[in-house]
């Protein structure tokens, strides 16, 4: 920052602390395309055998492509609903007069911090009762609901930064409140919608507990549950293949992260995970 202190001690210090993470990610990628002799960490040959799961279905598991499709469906549907519902609700909370507005606001704020996993048992039983257990729709609805308070909160925050005068000008120009929202205000919060969309997609893509509990069956299985199932199967232990599945699974995440890092940094600092 300022030039009065030496920088290299800080870089060295943090470099040492960061080394294990870099090491783990380095070997995550290296191990998927190489073999190492027993007891050694230094690979001695290239191989593609760890990626065989792409072409042959592992016994007792769904096809990786089924799981991928399910995950994609799960993440994109959740994201779309979250975007639509929270941009509407966020606007209402930020800008509109309505009965119970501050109650809604307080509620959203409390729910935003509220530990949702504590509701898992009740949600599990509800889904069983209404017949949505072991369906993608059920787990999509639940995931959407749990993402919503955060989404609404973020959107409300972004709407708050749009100048009131833009809305006033819109009204004077003859627009209804609804037109003001769709034609004047929504275009101003496009970056927010983009960021929230990416965030929700990643959250959906990574989600594990909800599909594990609410939709564990093979035909509705998502990649996280698929991978966890592989790992916990003690009879068929193959670390290099697990890592390959993992790399396959994490690729979209890495790509999104690389392209939208700054946007995500913003939203993670208001984040809701661990």
């Amino acid at each position: 920052m300022t030039g009065n202190y030496r920088k290299w001690p800080m870089i060295l210090f943090l470099g040492i602390l960061t080394a294990p993470i870099i090491l783990m990610y380095f070997y995550l990628f290296v191990d998927t395309v190489t073999n190492s002799p027993p007891g050694s960490m230094i690979p001695n040959e290239w191989t593609a055998e760890h990626w065989r799961f792409l072409f042959t279905t592992i016994p007792g598991r769904p096809s990786i492509w089924t799981a991928t499709l399910n995950t994609l469906l799960f993440a994109t549907t959740t994201t779309s609903i979250v975007l639509v519902v929270s941009s509407a609700a966020g606007y209402a909370l930020s800008r509109l007069n309505m009965p119970g507005r501050s109650l809604f606001l307080g509620g959203v704020l409390v729910l935003h911090a509220f530990p949702t996993v504590t509701l898992l048992i009740a949600i599990f039983l509800i889904l069983q009762m209404v017949g949505l257990y072991n369906t993608l729709i059920g787990v999509i609805l639940v995931k959407t609901a749990l993402e919503l308070p955060f989404g609404i909160w973020i959107m409300k925050g972004f709407y708050d930064t749009v100048p009131w005068e833009i809305e006033m000008a819109g009204l004077q120009d003859g627009a209804t409140r609804f037109q003001v929202w769709t034609k004047l205000v929504l275009p101003q919060v496009k970056p927010a919608i983009m960021a929230l969309g990416i965030f929700s997609f990643l959250a959906g893509w990574s989600e594990f507990i909800l599909p594990l509990v609410l939709a564990p069956d093979n035909n509705v299985q998502v990649l996280s549950v698929y991978l966890a199932g592989l790992i916990s199967d003690d009879t068929n232990f193959d670390m290099a293949m697990f890592k390959s599945v993992g790399v396959f699974y994490v690729l979209p995440v890495i790509i999104l992260f690389t392209f939208f890092q700054s946007k995500l940094m913003n939203i993670y600092s208001g984040g809701n995970k661990g």
Binding site: E165, L171, G174, T176
Partner: peptide, 18 residues
């Protein structure tokens, strides 16, 4: 407001940036 037919110039001009 919409029915009043009033033109307003705001302090910040309030032009639609997009």
């Amino acid at each position: 407001s919409q029915e009043r037919n009033v033109g307003v110039v705001f302090q910040s001009f309030a032009l639609y940036p997009h």
